[in-house]
Nucleic acid binder design. Structure first.
Lengths: 156, 156
DNA sequence: TTAATTAAAGATAAATTTGTCTTTTAATAT
DNA sequence: ATATTAAAAGACAAATTTATCTTTAATTAA
């Protein structure tokens, strides 16, 4: 019925976040995972996910190793320090929480657009949340079974 | 540097909001405006903006009249009752504030994704803001000169 | 009634995002 | 060294969003 179907993040970013969380959960078990396992677990197209992984590794969010026994991982130190905002910035940029709500080139406190003040709190809350949320807390929530990356089967 | 460049709303929605506000300001002066004036004022592509206007008129947000002296307008009653959420829903749908933050099909209080609680407040705030913001307050802010739809020239 | 005006509708095209496939590079195991 | 494994890189294709163009329908003015 509507013209578009817009989510908070792009598909690429959704895959990136889900992949990062899954890899982090596996790294906490000391296991590297290949792209095949990643895309299978997070239910995403494998080649496209591979592209996203390249961005994440280039940005130092995920580490990768080629060859036998290779795959993706997040180090014990990295998983603590990496924030959600790093993943979002690398894939979708910062315009979701920095840009003007209605797309004006110039929009600031001194020259605000009509929705500037209405969006202020939302932008701030989004920025704060992304800045404060660590990959570790997201991964540990999945590890503990409190949060999910996919729909559970009946027998799980 | 980043992979995408994602804003809060689609271009279509940005144009739709800007157009609605501009038309409302003109309607408060009792003046109908044509698509040419609209796209010129809000700095948007004319034919594409025309498409967006069709969506807004179909959804009863903007009224239109064909022929000489025709154009777009918002009635005095409508401008008071129309909320930002109606424009967003008509163009971008409700997924920005209803959908899962990382795109899971199933994501709820009983089966939450890892970022479910983090996104909760943001979704709620966004929904509240969109639901409470009227076209009238946005338009009157522009009328009073407090808020802007475009960059001012030196001599204005 | 005819001409002029303006939005609506439909077809088409460009740009961007998403998704796929093939080749290359790097690491490990034998 | 050679074969195998797995990510990186690059080329390509499909889908979606954005943008344009043309024709039609409705309204007003003469």
């Amino acid at each position: 019925m509507e013209f578009n179907q817009l989510y908070m993040f792009s598909k690429a970013c959704e895959y990136g976040i889900r992949a990062s969380i899954f890899i982090a959960t596996k790294s906490s078990e000391g296991v590297r995972v290949g792209i095949k396992d990643v895309s299978k677990e997070i239910d995403s197209p494998e080649p496209f996910t591979a592209k996203i992984m390249q961005i994440l590794t280039k940005n130092g969010i995920i580490a990768s190793a080629k060859g036998v026994g290779g795959g993706f991982e997040v180090s014990k130190e990295a998983v603590k320090s990496i924030k959600l905002i790093q993943i979002v910035d690398a894939i979708d940029g910062n315009t979701i929480y920095k840009g003007c709500g209605i797309g004006l080139k110039e929009c600031s406190e001194t020259h605000p657009c009509p929705v500037h003040n209405e969006f202020k709190k939302i932008r701030e809350l989004l920025l704060t949340m992304l800045t404060n949320t660590t990959l570790e807390e997201l991964a540990s929530g999945v590890n503990s079974g409190d949060f999910h990356l996919k729909i559970l089967n009946k027998n799980e």
